[in-house]
Design a protein around this nucleic acid. Structure first.
Lengths: 144, 144
DNA sequence: CGGTATCCACTTAGATACTG
DNA sequence: CAGTATCTAAGTGGATACCG
């Protein structure tokens, strides 16, 4: 993902797009790295990961069951599974207090914090454009 | 997703995170909107959508089959399906040239362009941090 | 060329029951 | 409390064949 292919967009559109970017994409990225990145992104791009990232971003530190209550609709199985993967990827830190009953706390690592920051722009986009998406859907659906 | 819960992070970590953000998340977002946004994000957060967004960002305008060749590993079915959903969401514009054989071109709408810009930060994060993720995985795996 | 339709193997995720 | 284990229903996506 380099510079956008500008030919088809107006200067206004390009400038509007710019307002969602923190910085420009680096110019010379090793093509091999692009593939790695593509694969990694596909891994993060699932429903629960994004929501958990967001929740921990907002709440700071949460116990397993608290997290479950914050993330509406998630099953215990998916919560465990997703947290385990995020821990493995270095995005969250899991702290076990060996008490009875056991207590386990989850919080973002600094790697998770920066990823959350990057996703923040996507959230902003969604807040600002969800009505446009809604409108597009309705138009698409009604024209047979 | 408001401000990060800052208590657990150092100023350095917070400042590093800031460098991935184009702007700060708006302060007072209707909680009802948050739910809508959450749902919508879950819809975009799939493997193929992100890759197609990226490809059209880079290439500008592509025919159906060209797109298929650029997006490695995608089946015709998924390509059709994903493009149709993105078109419905107003992210891509589909242009049909009624020639024989038919020719269909796809390109990003300005809505798609801005979403691509927002995702750009995530790509940058991935490029800059994929080694850290890799290292985290290896450490996690070897400590049984 | 750019699809749609059908079939099927495989994955996924929820519900449930159980445990340190 | 914070999981693991097992079963199963539903969904997903690939392969193949066919059509305008």
């Amino acid at each position: 993902m380099g510079k956008p292919n500008e030919s088809v967009f107006t200067p206004e559109e390009l400038s509007r797009a710019q307002s969602y970017k923190a910085r420009d994409y680096p110019k010379d990225v090793d093509p091999g790295v692009e593939d790695v990145v593509r694969g990694m992104l596909a891994g993060f791009a699932d429903k629960w990961t994004v929501v958990i990232l967001d929740t921990l971003w907002d709440e700071g530190t949460l116990r397993f069951s608290e997290l479950g209550r914050h993330v509406e609709g998630i099953s215990q199985k998916m919560l465990t599974q997703t947290l385990r993967r995020m821990e493995r990827d270095g995005l969250v830190i899991r702290t076990l207090y060996p008490s009875v009953p056991p207590k386990v706390e989850y919080r973002l690592s600094s790697l998770g914090l920066t990823l959350g920051a990057a996703f923040c722009n996507v959230w902003i986009w969604a807040v600002e454009n969800h009505k446009a998406v809604q409108a597009a859907r309705e138009e698409f659906d009604e024209k047979d």
